[in-house]
Amino acid sequence: MPRDLQEILAIAQSIGWGAAAILLDAQQTSFSIEQAGESPVTTADLAANQYILDNLQAALGVQDFAYLSEETFKSQPIADRLDRPWVWIIDPLDGTKDFINRTGEYAVHIALAHQGRPVLAIVACPEKDKLYYATLGGGAFVETRESETFHSQPVKVSTKNQPEELTIVASRSHRDDRFNQLMQQFPCKDQRQVGSVGGKIAAIVEQQADVYISLSGKSAPKDWDFAAPELILTEAGGKFTHFDGSPLHYNQEDVSQWGGILVSNGQCHEALCDRAVSLLAAIDQSQPF
């Protein structure tokens, strides 16, 4: 470990709050859309990204750590991060469509991965004035603040263990017909929509929901969508895997997370994965070629 993990966590928490303040300020003043379409980018994304990178690199440097950020990875030589043991994985604004539509359901993701797996995570939810954080083996916590005083308390997933009793969170966007069919047939009948993966995982660790499913179609979520939320969810007692139960790997050549991924409170995780696989097989068999 290049430096003490708790020391790095304190740095990341401060940067998470700072990035959240930038996004809140943009919501309350003004921002412009720099890139429209399925993956929009705003001036707020770019400002928060610059702030996070500048402050992490000022505090920690570039010798021991590589950096993988949504806003800069396309212009970054892959050799700068691939095969580097310690990599920061950053989404300065997860839920840009929600940010643009002012639903309040957007988040900041900052994760530190070692050998492709997250060991430290920050998910800040600016509109809720909450910051979730976790370290590998250290548990998951939510930090709130009153004036300049910060308060932390542990978070834990629910203990519900009957599939029909579980609440599933899904996106408003990123839904195709295949995913909609899966949702209609899935055993978790109570379904709610929450923007941002970080927001969905926050709902699960706050016991307001229990399950989240990601299913790639023409595109797939990226490393920065999942790395920070995964560690917070698993340190809160949940499970976050591919449908076959295998773990996710980050900082690969392809930063897309293809296939089916199931996130749950862990109580009937394997049964839900099996159910998703069998339902998808039937859905795919019924599709015209």
Results as ranks from 00 to 15, higher is better:
residue 1 M to H: 09
residue 1 M to P: 12
residue 4 D to L: 03
residue 4 D to N: 13
residue 6 Q to D: 08
residue 7 E to R: 07
residue 10 A to G: 00
residue 10 A to E: 14
residue 12 A to M: 12
residue 13 Q to P: 04
residue 18 G to K: 01
residue 22 I to V: 13
residue 22 I to F: 02
residue 23 L to Q: 03
residue 25 D to A: 10
residue 27 Q to D: 03
residue 34 E to Q: 07
residue 43 T to D: 04
residue 47 A to F: 09
residue 47 A to T: 05
residue 53 L to R: 00
residue 55 N to S: 02
residue 55 N to Y: 11
residue 56 L to H: 04
residue 62 V to Y: 04
residue 64 D to E: 06
residue 77 P to C: 07
residue 82 L to W: 15
residue 84 R to D: 10
residue 88 W to G: 13
residue 92 P to T: 07
residue 97 K to T: 06
residue 100 I to C: 07
residue 103 T to Y: 02
residue 105 E to W: 02
residue 112 L to S: 12
residue 120 L to P: 08
residue 123 V to H: 03
residue 129 D to K: 09
residue 130 K to W: 12
residue 132 Y to K: 01
residue 133 Y to N: 10
residue 134 A to C: 11
residue 134 A to I: 11
residue 135 T to C: 06
residue 143 E to L: 14
residue 147 S to Q: 03
residue 149 T to K: 09
residue 150 F to R: 15
residue 153 Q to E: 15
residue 154 P to W: 11
residue 155 V to A: 13
residue 156 K to W: 15
residue 160 K to C: 07
residue 174 H to T: 05
residue 175 R to E: 15
residue 178 R to C: 09
residue 183 M to Q: 10
residue 183 M to K: 02
residue 184 Q to W: 03
residue 187 P to Q: 06
residue 188 C to E: 09
residue 188 C to P: 04
residue 188 C to H: 01
residue 196 S to F: 06
residue 197 V to M: 13
residue 198 G to Q: 04
residue 202 A to E: 14
residue 203 A to K: 08
residue 203 A to P: 12
residue 204 I to N: 03
residue 204 I to W: 08
residue 218 K to E: 08
residue 218 K to Y: 06
residue 220 A to S: 11
residue 236 A to F: 09
residue 236 A to M: 09
residue 238 G to I: 10
residue 246 S to Q: 03
residue 251 N to D: 01
residue 258 W to P: 12
residue 263 V to C: 14
residue 265 N to E: 13
residue 266 G to A: 15
residue 267 Q to N: 15
residue 268 C to D: 13
residue 270 E to D: 11
residue 270 E to L: 03
residue 276 A to K: 01
residue 276 A to E: 14
residue 276 A to N: 05
residue 276 A to H: 02
residue 283 I to G: 10
residue 285 Q to W: 06
residue 285 Q to T: 06
